[in-house]
Design a protein around this nucleic acid. Structure first.
Lengths: 337, 337
DNA sequence: CTGAAAGCGCTTACAG
DNA sequence: CTGAAAGCGCTTACAG
């Protein structure tokens, strides 16, 4: 393993000063082309690669944004991470994927700057941490929230309109002839979390349509994995066989619900419609393919990035979504047709 | 945004020297308990968090390992990343997830140290880069390869036995009564890549069983996404309707193949068995659930980490695998039963 | 356009 | 057990 070569060696090799090398490496236009060429050759010959740590220390910036998500088991986060990385590149930034495990301790770690100035900003998908804890934050690292909204503190926030998208889904189901619509993955009404907003929209749409809200058709959950969807769907389908549609708070829940429906002998979409959020690749290959709310991920990444980098004024950004209709929510046939 | 407080401020506040603060922060046993308490209190009061960049520069180490994978669309990589992060934590290391996009340029970037000393080691899942390029490497950053094997250079390497696991799968299919077994995702025979090794095992098993190897039943591919599986399966099933099983080089291909089979009116597992690799969560919820080779991920993470940190002698580690049998490869019923 | 000096925030020997 | 100095590898003003 060869000894690492630094700016000094390069400067010596090229017969210029330290600083000139730095100027060349940073593409500053103040270097004579001739000198520049000599330096670049020295860099090449010596195989010099600048030590970013030195630069970062000096500049007081890492040009790295942390994306803090609970988990990578949800393909949505994986795709989000990838989209963010691509959006950050042209800006000269890197996105580091940080896993909180959904634990409150890990989340506080990032929120309160115990990451040690490694990041110029935080794009944060909160899971366990309370709104208060976010509002009480003193760490100066810029923060942007995904999904969750903290109205009290002026924390920027980027998300689709969860209430509206939920209304869209329910209306789509009602238009398709469904009347006994359940909800999987509910959280407390009035909360600001993604789950409670989606549930809120569901309630509002039912009310508007004049359909009753039945507690039996609603299953709460804080974890939204496939197995949770399976469990919750079993529960609802068993207790309320009249259910003819399930709004699932995310696609993983819907995938689990699909499996439960099958095990209980229910046919999707004939007996039961299934819809969810995120439009992960997997739902296109489910049988049948599942209807899902697709956020405009590129817009989301763009907005989150520009917010965390301080490029935009107001902090609350609503991202477009669309309902991607697939077979799982096909309208029920009129009886006898 | 408050001004950031450094060691100096803490030292002053506690009435001790700079260095003592450093000693306390690093848990060195040379500090009197009383002094230590005073320092910790100052840290608390001032809300001091050490700047890791300074430490990293001084120590010449970041205690960060890069996991370089082509993509996060494959849930296998997402789970691997998570497992590695958890395995690294007790060692005091962090794993940074780096996306190469499968591009040769990005891969070279990491391989040849142009990442700027940000990483103490590289766990690398090669995709586009050639074996030669890896062997010619001069960058001193420790490297461990995942999947691919470079025999010429002494590059450590961690993987399951791809040939053996492929043999296991094919034997399982033959035991289940399948006789016309195809392969999706083949690569050049004799290569060291994951795909070619899995194909190699398939060939060997067929030969051992006395079954013919038919080129029509084999579809090559360099991309292993669901849509590739769909396309390849369509192709093989159309040209060779006698196929009664497909060995898919990974689970995503199998998921796509399942969808293609359905669209062509083939029933899995009655008409067609489907098997793959990685045992991603998704295949447990497929309909029917898919048989898959599950690597011992914890062992893999452990081995990769200890190899890249230089904790073990020999570089080539073979990780246990097991075939998780599910409905997709159920034995065909004897005719008439 | 180029050079000599200072400093980013830590830790590491080295004295005491 | 504690203190003063040097240095990790860069970049940033500041002169010339």
């Amino acid at each position: 393993m060869a000894k690492r070569v630094g700016v000094k060696e390069v400067a010596e090799h090229a017969g210029v000063s330290w600083k000139t090398v730095s100027n060349v490496m940073n593409n500053r236009p103040v270097v004579r082309p001739e000198t520049r060429a000599r330096v670049l050759q020295a860099v090449e010959e010596l195989g010099y690669t600048p030590n970013l740590i030195g630069r970062q220390l000096r500049q007081g910036s890492t040009r790295t944004i942390a994306l803090v998500v609970p988990d990578l088991r949800n393909p949505y986060f994986a795709r989000l991470a990838q989209t963010l990385q691509e959006a950050a590149r042209p800006r000269g930034y890197t996105v580091s994927i940080e896993l909180s495990g959904g634990g409150i301790e890990a989340e506080q770690h990032y929120l309160h700057g115990r990451h040690g100035r490694l990041f110029d900003g935080l794009i944060f998908s909160p899971s366990a941490v309370t709104i208060d804890a976010m509002a009480r934050r003193t760490d100066p690292t810029p923060l942007v929230l995904l999904g969750e909204r903290v109205a009290t503190a002026r924390i920027p926030h980027v998300a689709i309109d969860n209430v509206a998208s939920s209304v869209d889904l329910v209306r789509h189901l009602i238009d398709g002839g469904r009347r006994h619509i359940g909800f999987l993955g509910a959280e407390a009404v009035g909360g600001t979390s993604t789950g409670s907003q989606r549930f809120e929209g569901y309630r509002a749409a039912l009310r508007f349509a004049g359909l009753p809200l039945s507690a039996d058709l609603v299953a709460a959950a804080d974890s939204w994995q496939r197995e949770d969807g399976y469990r919750l769907a079993q529960q609802v389908l068993r207790s309320s066989p009249e259910v003819d549609a399930l709004v699932c708070a995310n696609d993983l829940l819907a995938v689990g619900a699909l499996s439960a429906a099958r095990d209980l002998g229910r046919t999707v979409p004939d007996d039961l419609a299934l819809v969810g959020w995120d439009d992960i690749d997997e739902v296109r290959y489910a049988m049948p393919p599942l209807t899902s709310v697709a956020p405009d991920l590129d817009a989301l990444a763009e907005a989150a990035l520009s917010a965390v980098l301080g490029e935009r004024e107001e902090g609350q950004v609503v991202i477009d979504h669309r309902v991607v209709v697939r077979e799982s929510s096909r309208p029920v046939r009129a009886p006898g047709s």
